[in-house]
Design a protein around this nucleic acid. Structure first.
Lengths: 376, 376
DNA sequence: CTCTTGTGCGGGAACGTTCCCGCATCAATA
DNA sequence: TATTGATGCGGGAACGTTCCCGCACAAGAG
């Protein structure tokens, strides 16, 4: 006993027999029991330092038998980081947490957590539109902000707090912010090209009227594609995301447009069977009268009759790219990563394949001379 | 400068001009700048201690202007806990993370995270079937294990590590473990009673063949109810959860049973529109030929034609009860909490209401004398 | 026999907080 | 004028790790 405990005269209540529920065993406890120093025990357990095999083994065995578990917080303090990342999803910020019900975000969330954990980072779920006070008590090494809405302060707050942010392309160029995004333009073009190949000439689009970068880019891509191909721009914007508004928008697209569409692309997290039912209710046979494709991760698309063609935004790939970038920035100090664009995947199923009985145009569609809009 | 920096002769690289990216400002930095001690600054920022208003304000202002943010890890170390809880879902342990795609778990997860954060706890997502190594580096105050499967080691590992566990009723009686559960028996009885009121006499049940306590209790409750009411026990177990197997089980229930059912209760996270479509494909008109109810949180049930009756397991209430219990145990040391049973909610919609044109039995069904099975 | 080199282990200082004290100072009372 | 009590602030010890050293000792080289 080289030094007095300092706190009180008593030899500290560590040595048991007090009613308290058995304090956790620390490194020094193991060291004392094994007749070693905490330095040696630490080195033994971590496999570092210069130790004789006997001492190493003795320390390990003592630690095991005493049920020693290192204090994670103390380690973090020493290490200078907590290997903890935050995860916020900004869409639907007014209705926090409903995002998990959308298959895309459900998968993105799960894949992000899994990938992060594989790289040694734990992920905490944060509510959208949260204040500083909600997360300032957390030792966050970085925060992922999935699909921020334009007016959300969260990204600014995080950057002001010098916390690295990983988000979508809308943060491009801001110092301390990095991005991974879905190739929305490619997605829309891919689906519309597919419709065109299958003979559709009046493809319609349904997209929610949200302020996320993705939805805006979808709308613009559709506009450009229609202009470039000289086809009518049939688009309906759903008032908000969610099955109700989207299904109503689908009904508008099927009945309330100047032209009756022969193909429908739904770029919203709507339930494929619901969309299919809506089409049927309004007298469309799919795929006979209407080719249907949904941007969706919902696996119910594979269980309808006919099965519904989907365009996957590949949330797992987005998550992987995001975490890879995060690790590169946090651990190797690569701040110059330019961002990553993840390609989409079209899963063609019966709902968008023209049945053999129907007339398929042999030649590509006539390109009208009035294509004056830029193909950008 | 009362004491040498100890580390090296240099005045430490804190004072800038080195290429390093501006080290984070600490409490002592603020104190030095304000001409105060770290004790006073700490007290000023935390609103504790005895300080003159001027000093308090000066400390706050200096901290603000220097962009001081307290180090969360150091606080946690001092406080002895991290206010961090783990969240594991054990079902579908072989396919980690798919659970988030089920509306029930999506809502449960979101509600748990939100409620926890409201009480000052952050929630980290952990993969099912994870090893000690995955979470041992995290300073978890407790772990929530949603619906553990019978053979999962996770609960044992956590209890062995002296981490409080909050789970379903299957952990009842184990020291250090607490539970909140859904009243499965009440749920089944509620739905079947409703069918009976609506005149059904051959209600069928579809339930996944899983090892979670919930699904086993559902099966047993159905068995008891049928016996008590002298009705045929029409039950089909889906090979596993998921839309595919469940829809196939629904088809079996509709076509492959000894009796043709006149009501169907689907206790699985299946998409209501898919179940409805399956019934139609096999010649049932809902609700004319078949009363339908699903145990589901899927909001698509409100957008089908007819709308589908659902039995909500109230994940938000489960989450709230769980966190409340967690706080009681962690902060007030109430270890004796007996557990909480959350009631269900039946949302009756058109799919389970006998249309007026159909014959409705005026009197309650004849109770046969052979009711020998215990009504427990 | 002395000087170096290497090995095995321990002391003690960080990491950044909070909080228990103790030491001044000053007003009020005897 | 002394004694008390309250008030305002600072010193320093924790919290439990990791890691940089330095010290002792043994072995080999000159």
């Amino acid at each position: 006993m080289t030094k007095a405990p300092g706190h009180g005269g008593q030899p500290s209540p560590r040595d048991g027999r007090l009613s308290s529920p058995a304090p956790r065993v620390r490194l020094v406890d193991v060291a004392r029991e094994a007749g070693l120093s905490k330095t040696s025990v630490s080195a033994a357990l971590n496999g570092t330092g210069r130790l004789s095999p006997e001492v190493r083994e003795r320390a390990r065995e003592t630690a095991r038998s005493m049920g020693y578990r290192p204090n994670a917080t103390a380690r973090q303090l020493r290490a200078g980081r907590a290997r903890l990342i935050g995860y916020v999803v900004g869409e639907l910020a007014d209705v926090p947490w409903t995002f998990l019900e959308s298959p895309y975000f459900a998968r993105l969330t799960g894949a992000t957590a899994a990938t992060a954990l594989g790289r040694g980072y734990a992920m905490v779920l944060l509510p959208a539109g949260s204040l500083q006070s909600e997360w300032s008590a957390l030792p966050l090494d970085a925060v992922i902000v999935a699909d921020p809405v334009a007016d959300d302060r969260i990204v600014d707050d995080l950057l002001a707090a010098r916390i690295p942010v990983f988000s979508d392309r809308s943060v491009e160029g801001r110092p301390g912010a990095h991005w991974v995004d879905v190739d929305a333009t490619a997605a829309v073009h891919r689906a519309l090209d597919h419709f065109l190949e299958q003979g559709a000439r009046r493809p319609a689009l349904v997209v929610p009227d949200s302020t996320t970068r993705f939805h805006r880019e979808v709308f613009a891509a559709h506009h450009d594609w229609c202009a470039a191909h000289g086809l009518p721009e049939l688009a309906v914007r759903a008032a908000e995301p969610g099955n109700g508004p989207v299904v109503r928008a689908v009904e508008t697209a099927l009945t309330g447009l100047p032209e009756r569409p022969d193909a429908l692309l739904v770029v919203a997290e709507a339930s494929p069977p619901l969309v299919l039912d809506a089409a049927r209710r309004h007298g469309y046979e799919v795929p006979g009268d209407l080719l249907l494709a949904c941007v969706s991760e919902d696996e119910t698309a594979r269980h309808t009759e006919p099965q519904v063609t989907t365009l996957s935004l590949r949330p797992d790939a987005v998550a992987e790219a995001g975490i890879e970038q995060l690790v590169a920035v946090l651990e190797h100090g690569r701040a110059e990563t330019g961002g990553t664009l993840v390609p989409v995947r079209l899963d063609v199923r019966a709902s968008s394949v023209r049945p053999s009985g129907h007339p398929a145009p042999p030649a590509p569609p006539p390109q009208p001379p009035c294509t004056s809009s830029p193909p950008t």
